[in-house]
């Protein structure tokens, strides 16, 4: 990566962090939630670029969140780095097993099977009284390398973690999309037969992407759990997974920033829609998505691409 890009990245991260400190608390909360979901959607986009729509990323989002919850609540581990590592490990481990079956399917079957697995987790959690059943349980304040922040500083720590994660993962995914592995996903979407006849396993390509998407969802779930201070089975419910697909369609799949923009707008839209029309807010969301699909089929990021092309002449 060029020095200019690295400086831009660090500047962007600092800007985002400072913005999070300056805006009202509710908006800062919304920013972190959006960043958490944006990370999950990054994984959804990764799969979409390979031609797969997952309606089951809630599975790993929930696993990431519950790992954060159980470690802080039951194991006495609050270090945010350890929690993140454990979330990634747990998500990837489950994905490694589930993916063996799932990555053999395409289209509607992949979408429905992925949803089925997340609903299995939902069912297990609802039945689990130890983990709070339908109510879930609270997540304790995180720490960092022995530093235990105060109540006020705790949300700043989570904000910093979210910003750093977004920047690091966004950069890695940006590089990934430009690599052979990134293009291999598009190749699989376009023509699996040719990929096989180039001597490469399509299954391996998809499986790798599925594991990466699971790790991203686990991280996103952890960030969300740490900022909200609570986890519950709804995180694995199919509507949560549908939300991620909704955001991916809103933002678009052409750039790593698109999921973040999509997630930010989605959270703002939902908040205001709920405030304006508490009983019909879903209609506002649905109408917005409809308009985006009709007028911007490649998502909101296509506007940015269009303007930047025009600026370049």
């Amino acid at each position: 990566m060029q020095t200019k890009s690295i400086l831009l990245l660090i500047g962007g991260a600092l800007g985002l962090f400072v913005l999070g400190l300056l805006v009202p608390e509710w908006l800062s909360y919304l920013m972190i939630i959006a960043m958490g979901k944006g990370i999950v959607v990054l994984g959804v986009v990764l799969l979409m670029r390979a031609g797969l729509v997952s309606f089951g990323q809630g599975l790993y989002y929930c696993i990431g969140a519950y790992v954060a919850g159980t470690l802080t609540q039951f194991a006495g581990i609050s270090d945010v780095l350890l929690i993140l590592l454990a979330s990634i490990a747990a998500s990837v481990l489950v994905a490694a097993l589930v993916g063996l079956l799932l990555c053999r399917y395409r289209g509607i079957f992949f979408a429905m099977f992925s949803m089925a697995f997340s609903m299995i987790l939902y069912g297990l959690l609802v039945r689990s009284s130890v983990l709070g059943s339908t109510d879930g349980f609270n997540v304790l304040r995180p720490s960092l390398l022995g530093w235990v922040p105060s109540d006020d500083a705790s949300s700043d720590l989570v904000l910093a973690v979210a910003v750093v994660m977004v920047m690091i993962l966004g950069s890695l995914m940006w590089l990934y999309f430009r690599s052979l592995s990134g293009y291999a996903g598009e190749a699989v979407r376009e023509n699996e037969i040719r990929v096989e006849y180039l001597g490469t396993s399509v299954f391996r390509i998809i499986y790798t992407k599925y594991l990466i998407a699971a790790a991203l969802a686990g991280i996103g779930g952890t960030v969300t759990a740490l900022v909200s201070g609570h986890v519950d089975p709804e995180m694995a419910y199919w509507t949560t997974s549908g939300e991620f697909v909704f955001i991916a369609l809103m933002g678009g799949t052409s750039h790593v920033a698109a999921p973040m923009v999509g997630a930010g707008l989605f959270e703002l839209l939902r908040t205001y829609a709920f405030a304006i029309a508490p009983y019909t807010w879903q209609m506002i969301l649905g109408s917005t998505l409809l308009l985006i699909i009709i007028f911007l089929p490649s998502g909101l990021w296509s506007l940015v691409s269009r303007f930047s092309r025009q600026a370049r002449g």
């Binding site: 690599s179 052979l180 592995s181």
Partner: peptide, 10 residues
């Protein structure tokens, strides 16, 4: 190449 490089640009 047959190596699915993760980060090296295509």
């Amino acid at each position: 190449d047959r190596k699915l490089t993760l980060l090296r640009p295509l």
